[in-house]
Computed example of a mutant assay.
Amino acid sequence: MAENNSSVVLFERFLQRWMVSQEHYLDELLTTERNCGEYGEKEMTDLVSRVLTHYQLYYEQKSRVIERNVFVVFSPPWFTPLERTLLWIGGFKPGLAFRIVAEAVGELSEDQRRRMNELQEETRTEERLLSDELARIQETVAAPPLMELARQAGRRRDGEILGSDSVTELLSSALETVVRDAELLRMSTAVKVVEILTPIQNVKFLGAVGRFHMKIRTWGLQRNREGGAND
């Protein structure tokens, strides 16, 4: 398949547009947080809903890449090396949401703390199960080094699964299931956190999530520029 038609190239183009919208949403969240007295709960709830829909669009587009070549999401060419060091099964670890809540949202009610603690424990359990499943898959199929497959997939950029032998095909199928489960856990965890928080707390939470992602990306791009300047 021609490079211009590859799922990776198309996703990278989508991501560029998505990041522009992400910056606009972040500005809106921060403005709402600073001037929360001027906004009603319905306005804040509508904003939170639009931001979640924006993230859902990201996962839907990424799903197409996973379907074509799951290996590439373990070392995504659309992320900087710094961003890739933070990845867990193709994306950020779901448990990161609880750290952001603790640092950015502020005081929770007793009921909110109880529900958040229960959700956090459930999420940790699911993370462990998925990590164990990923390790089991690699051991069971005697897989080649996963990161090397990911790097090769990124270099090819044609959306084709590397190799045609049964081991690679089996690995691809098994990994796709694990990655999709991890994607579902990432999104479902965020949605459940939002259900626990109040509208203004959600504005703070999603604003902090956006700041974190933008900061990591900015640092990663800066490192890339500095590394290029030193070559």
Rank of each mutant, 00 (worst) to 15 (best):
G106W: 03
P199E: 03
R113T: 02
A104S: 13
P76E: 01
Q22Y: 14
H213N: 11
L87E: 06
V51T: 00
R225D: 08
A2I: 13
A150H: 02
M1G: 11
L206G: 03
L47K: 10
S166N: 09
S172P: 07
L162E: 05
L184M: 12
V8E: 12
R13K: 14
N35R: 02
R114L: 08
E110R: 10
E67Y: 02
E12S: 14
R186F: 02
L108A: 00
L29R: 03
C36G: 11
V209T: 02
F71D: 05
A97Y: 07
E33C: 02
V194H: 12
L197V: 02
R211V: 09
M44V: 05
R157E: 11
L171M: 06
L197F: 10
E3A: 06
E139G: 10
F74D: 03
V72E: 04
L52G: 05
N69Y: 00
L206R: 07
T45C: 06
E28L: 04
R34I: 11
F71L: 01
R64C: 09
F98R: 09
A104K: 09
P144D: 05
L170R: 10
L52S: 11
R113M: 12
G40D: 10
V167Q: 12
G163M: 06
Q138C: 07
E83T: 03
D231M: 06
F74H: 03
F71S: 06
Q222V: 00
W219V: 12
K93N: 13
R180Q: 10
R223Q: 13
E60M: 14
E23D: 02
L185Y: 00
N224K: 14
W18T: 01
V72S: 09
Q120H: 11
V51F: 02
E169V: 05
I100R: 13
F71I: 06
A142Q: 15
A143G: 02
T31M: 08
L57Y: 08
R114F: 00
N5A: 14
V9E: 14
T177R: 15
R34N: 07
L175V: 07
D27V: 01
F74V: 01
D231E: 15
L197S: 06
L149F: 04
G227R: 14
G91K: 01
E169K: 02
E38W: 07
G37K: 04
T177D: 06
R155F: 08
G159M: 08
Q61D: 14
L197E: 07
V65Y: 07
L82A: 08
K42L: 13
M214A: 15
Q152S: 13
S173M: 01
R99E: 15
Q112V: 11
V65P: 07
R128S: 01
T177W: 03
E126L: 02
D111P: 00
T218P: 01
E38L: 14
V101E: 09
